[in-house]
Nucleic acid binder design. Structure first.
Length: 101
DNA sequence: GTCGTGACTAGCC
DNA sequence: CGGCTAGCCACGA
């Protein structure tokens, strides 16, 4: 049973174009709750739509992968599939791929 | 109504 | 760069 908050989060994520990524922080900011970044993470974790909602494009502010319900390995692969480079668990040239809402 | 938990962040050491 | 802490928010028990 999606809550209003969750719907907003997912809706925003759907706006992220292929080959781009965003952060929990920016996402929270986009829905007028700039300090709810952790809550955003919970919304993604409960996301019933996958991969309809590209939650794998959401990473931590420092460019690291962050978490992922289905395993970081999968998340990493999905991003590499979109031509995003990785160095261990960090995105190479993070700002270059960063999508600002 | 209160408490614990978490896919977080920023600050400090 | 790594580790720890406090702060913030939504959600379920």
């Amino acid at each position: 049973m999606p809550t209003g908050f969750q719907k907003k989060v997912w809706q925003k994520i759907k706006n992220i174009p292929k080959g781009k990524v965003s952060t929990y922080k920016l996402l929270a900011f986009a829905i007028k709750k700039k300090k709810a970044y952790q809550a955003v993470g919970q919304a993604l974790k409960k996301n019933p739509f996958w991969p309809k909602v590209p939650c794998h494009r959401i990473v931590k502010s420092n460019g690291e992968l962050g978490g992922f319900s289905r395993g970081k390995r999968v998340k990493k692969r999905l991003l590499e599939k979109e031509e995003i480079g990785f160095k261990k668990n960090k995105i190479i040239d993070f700002k270059k791929y960063l999508y600002r809402f």
